[in-house]
């Protein structure tokens, strides 16, 4: 199971890097999604490692997916409005909020 754990760690760091370094809002959203996916991968691995198989992490991942879908929806709506506002002000404001 170690490869999965390593993969989860790599994905998490990748997500962090993307969040901090990418400027475009869509890339930031994707980075956040990669981040949460890494956590879900870890949880599923944990479930598989348990003896006997543990259903609780699956329940958590399911809930987590619902949460992530909602957050992504909010993020997309927010990014769209931000872009519209940026156009409205003649693109003077930087849309990445930094």
């Amino acid at each position: 199971m170690t490869p999965y754990l390593v993969l989860a760690a790599v994905l998490f760091v990748l997500g962090l890097h993307g969040l901090f370094v990418c400027r475009h809002p869509l890339r930031k959203i994707l980075a956040l999604n990669v981040l949460t996916t890494a956590v879900f991968l870890l949880l599923v691995t944990v479930a598989r490692l348990a003896e006997p198989l543990d259903p609780v992490p699956h329940a958590m991942v399911l809930t987590g997916i619902v949460v992530t879908v909602s957050t992504t929806a909010v993020a997309l709506a927010l990014a769209a409005r931000l872009a519209a506002f940026g156009r409205g002000t003649g693109g003077k404001r930087r849309t990445d909020g930094s």
Partner: peptide, 30 residues
């Protein structure tokens, strides 16, 4: 208006916080 940019930063920061917290929880559960 200008609050949108602030909301966006807040959103990213707080979601990052939740994800990192969840990672900690997952490790603890494991």
């Amino acid at each position: 208006g200008p609050a949108l940019a602030a909301a966006w930063r807040y959103f990213l920061a707080t979601l990052l916080g939740s994800s990192i917290y969840l990672l900690g929880v997952a490790l603890l559960y494991g």
